Computed example of a mutant assay.
Amino acid sequence: MSVAPFDTFNLGDHVGDDPAAVAANRRRLAEAIGLPPDRVVWMNQVHGDRVVRVDEPRDTAVDGTDALISTEPRLALAVITADCVPVLLGDVRAGVIGAVHAGRVGAAKGVVARTVEAMIAAGARPEDISALLGPAVSGANYEVPTAMAEEVEAALPGSRTRTAAGTPGLDLRAGIARQLVDLGVTAIDVDTRCTFADRNLFSHRRGAPTGRLASLVWME
C-alpha cells in the first residue's frame, strides 16, 4: 500500500513511491477490470510525439513513448497523468484503439494527431473514431507566461485562454478537441474535472511530489 503523498491508489512508478506498492496497485487495477496484469500495457512517458503499436501482452512498460495503439482485443492501453490530458480513442468498427499522454509539450508537438494517423494506418476511419479527453488541469488553473501561451496557441490553436485570475493560461483540452475535429473526429467527450481543483485527483501543479492517476482503453 502506498503511503502519503501517494496513498490514494498511485499508479505512477516514477514519482518516488515504493515500487512494490505501485506494482501492487497496478495488479489490483488489472484485477478490477478483469484482465491479467500483462494485458495492461503501460508507457514510460517522455512528453514527445512517438506512437507505438502493441498487439501482444507484455510485462514491461513501453519505453520512450507517449502514445499507444492496438488492434488486439482485451489488451488495455494505459496513460498516467497528474495534470496532462489523457486522450482515449477507439474505432469500434475497425477494431483499433489508441491512448495518448498529451501534456503541453507533447500536445504542441502533435502527439494526438500522430496517434490518429497511426490508427488510420491500422484501418481506422476518422469519422468512426470516438475520443474521450480525461481529467486534466483546466484553463482556469493553468497559468503560463504570455510567450508560452502564444507558442502553444500557434502549434495547437484553441489552447490559449485566461485563468480565473485573468492571467494568460492554457486549456489543452480545448485545443486538442479542435485538433480532433480538424482531423475528422467529431465524436468527442470531455471529462471536465480539473485535477488542480479536485482534491480526489492527483495534481503535480497543486502539490509535487504526488502520484499519478491512470486512464485506460481496451476492446472486449
Score class of each variant (00 low, 15 high):
R39Q: 11
G16P: 04
R28K: 12
A76K: 01
D59T: 13
W218Q: 04
D7G: 10
E150C: 12
V116C: 05
N44E: 07
L172G: 00
F202N: 01
E56M: 13
P86G: 01
E56P: 12
A147W: 10
R205V: 15
L213V: 08
R39L: 07
D55S: 11
A67I: 02
Q45A: 13
V41I: 15
R178Y: 04
V54Q: 02
C194E: 03
V190S: 06
R58S: 09
T71Y: 05
L89C: 11
A107S: 15
G48I: 04
G90A: 14
W218S: 02
Q179W: 04
L35F: 06
R28C: 04
G184K: 09
A149W: 02
P73R: 14
E56R: 15
V15Q: 09
R104K: 09
N44H: 06
L88T: 02
M1R: 15
V96A: 04
R160N: 08
K109S: 01
P135F: 09
A23C: 06
G207Q: 11
F196Q: 05
W42I: 03
I80H: 01
P135D: 09
V87E: 00
D66C: 03
L133A: 05
N25R: 10
A187E: 11
A78P: 00
S138E: 05
L29V: 14
P19M: 15
P209R: 14
H14R: 13
R27W: 07
D7F: 08
A154N: 11
R26T: 07
G16H: 08
A124I: 06
S138V: 06
S70P: 06
